[in-house]
Computed example of a mutant assay.
Amino acid sequence: MHRLPPLLLLQAASLSEAALRFGCATVSSQRLDPLVEPGQVPSAHVHQIVGGNAFNASMAGDIGEQATCTTCTYSEDFSNYWTAVLYFRHPTNGSYKRVPQYPNAQLGYEGRDARDIKGGMTIYYTERDFETDGDEYISAFKPGFRMTVGSPTITNLSDAQRQPGLRYTCLEDILTRSHETYELPARPCPAGIMAIHHFPTCWDGVNLDSPDHQSHMYNTKPPGDGGFLNVDKCPESHPVKVPQLAYETMWNTSMFADMWPADESQPFVWSFMDSKGYGTHADYVFGWKGDSLQRALNSSCMFHGCGSPGVQGVLKTQPIADMNKCAVENTVTEDTEGWLSELPGSR
Rank of each mutant, 00 (worst) to 15 (best):
F141C: 08
M147Q: 13
I117S: 00
R98E: 13
Y102D: 00
G144Y: 09
D133S: 07
R89E: 14
M147G: 00
F145R: 04
F130I: 03
N93H: 09
F145E: 13
N93F: 00
Y102L: 03
I117N: 11
G144N: 10
P103C: 02
E127K: 10
T148F: 07
M121C: 05
K118M: 12
E127S: 10
P100Y: 04
I138D: 03
A105S: 14
G120H: 08
I123A: 04
R115P: 04
Q106F: 06
I123K: 04
T148V: 15
G134E: 00
G134K: 08
H90R: 08
Y137N: 14
T132Y: 08
D116A: 14
R89S: 12
G120R: 03
E131H: 06
V149R: 10
V99M: 07
A140F: 06
F145L: 06
V149A: 12
R98S: 03
P100I: 13
Y137Q: 10
E127L: 03
F145C: 01
V99N: 01
E131A: 09
K142F: 03
G120I: 15
P143N: 07
G94W: 02
G120N: 00
P103V: 09
Y102G: 11
P143H: 08
R89N: 08
G94T: 11
N93W: 04
N104V: 04
H90W: 11
A114L: 04
Y124R: 07
E131L: 10
V149C: 11
R128H: 09
